[in-house]
Computed example of a mutant assay.
Amino acid sequence: MRVTNYLGAVAARQIFMLGANLRQIRTSPVSERSQKRQNHLRNLFWICYTLDKDIALRTGQPPVIVDENCDLTMPEGYTERAFSDPEKDDNPSAEPIFPFDLRLSMIKSRTQSHLYSVSAMQKSDADLLKSIRELDDELEEWRLSVPPQWRPTMSFSQETSDPNMSMHSVMLRVNYYLCMSVIHQASSRCKAWMQGSGMMDGVSSSLALSVEASRSTLCYLGAAEHVLVEGVFWTLIFYPMSALLTIFCSILQNPLDPRSRDDLDHLKMATVMMARIFSRNLPETEVEHLKLVADFVTELKRLAECAIDKAWREQSASSHVAS
């Protein structure tokens, strides 16, 4: 992680030195070569920006690129071309497809800043829940702006269909569900709830959305298994692991919840699913990593099952004593 942060800092410094963080406002005609150079620099900036915000959200570390030091005006015509499918688009002059939707990357940036930065950790319960609501509104506004054929559903289950499944739609969906999960998971920091003052309705519903987004991640990856390209281990592994940990924590928090057994099944199926997805033509050097992941998920499943069984035994014993 230190190496990643260091390389990110070096790349960001170079981007800023080249002025790529700013959009050049043309006051006079420029040569075609100068225009191509500026467009290329801006594309490099957006690639660094999206990766930086994603890494910050994954690791919990501060981003290297600060929004206040950048012009975040999107490329001209971006929203019209943002959802062209690189697997089907044979137009070589099409707008480059960035690692993530730029607007979603901006939401990731504000999520880290408003919910997980040092200053955000000091927010009162009311301010924290306000930030969560505002970010949730932004995320929903983004979702509704996505063309219907690509638009992620708020929840995905085995009964849900997606006729446009491709690696493009997979990355779109898992990043949407990740943002939903991370935004609402922050509600668990509410001091009133942490101090045992009871589960407030706002916190309860927010945490439920986080868990549902995690369930949707696993269900969608399982349904999209046939479109996943080979060699996606390091690209995708974070998403199911983040979802599994959220579901695991939910089981520990509410082992008697009616859906806990179903969530336990999600943990069981995830082990098989990930082995099937990620083991295809996996290089020998990566096999050990996959084995570590499988062992970890198996242990999560065992601990979750123990928590559920223990909670039911205690409830049964209490009921027996009361009668």
Rank of each mutant, 00 (worst) to 15 (best):
F156Q: 06
V321E: 10
N164V: 09
L41M: 11
K310T: 13
A304Y: 05
L236T: 09
Y220V: 04
D67T: 11
S260N: 04
N91A: 02
G60W: 08
S181P: 02
R151F: 06
E284I: 15
F248E: 03
D309G: 05
T59H: 02
T27P: 00
S205A: 13
T246Q: 09
S216M: 04
T160I: 05
F238E: 07
G19W: 04
T111P: 01
L218E: 03
S124A: 08
Q61H: 12
R151E: 03
R189V: 00
N39V: 01
K268A: 07
V203S: 01
A56T: 02
R81L: 13
G222M: 03
V182A: 12
L51A: 14
A304V: 07
L135V: 07
C219R: 09
R110C: 00
A307Y: 02
I25S: 14
V66Y: 10
A213N: 08
D162S: 09
P163H: 09
Q112R: 12
I183P: 03
I97V: 14
E299P: 03
Y239G: 05
S216V: 04
N43D: 14
N43K: 07
D71E: 08
T235F: 08
M200T: 11
Y49N: 10
N21C: 07
C190N: 06
I237Y: 08
R81Y: 14
L57W: 02
G77W: 06
L300S: 00
Y176G: 04
S318Q: 14
C190R: 04
P240I: 04
C179A: 15
T4Y: 06
S166P: 05
T298S: 14
D263L: 06
S155V: 11
I247P: 00
Q112F: 13
K301E: 14
N175M: 05
Q61N: 09
A9H: 09
H320M: 11
Y177G: 05
A294G: 05
L207D: 02
I25W: 06
R42H: 01
M154V: 00
S119P: 01
L57K: 00
R81V: 07
Q315W: 11
L267S: 02
I55C: 05
S214M: 04
V232F: 01
V321Q: 13
S319P: 00
A223T: 12
M199Y: 03
Q253D: 13
R42F: 04
F156H: 06
S28I: 00
C219I: 01
C219Q: 11
E288P: 00
A270W: 00
G77R: 09
K36R: 15
E314I: 00
M121T: 10
W193D: 13
E159R: 09
M165H: 02
M106A: 08
Q61L: 14
P152C: 03
T153G: 14
H114W: 12
A307M: 04
V182E: 12
M154T: 10
L18T: 06
P163C: 06
K88C: 06
M1A: 15
C219E: 08
S117P: 06
I277G: 02
L267W: 04
L72K: 04
R280C: 01
I308S: 03
D136V: 05
Y6M: 11
I247E: 01
P92K: 04
D67C: 11
L178G: 02
F296I: 00
R33A: 12
L256G: 10
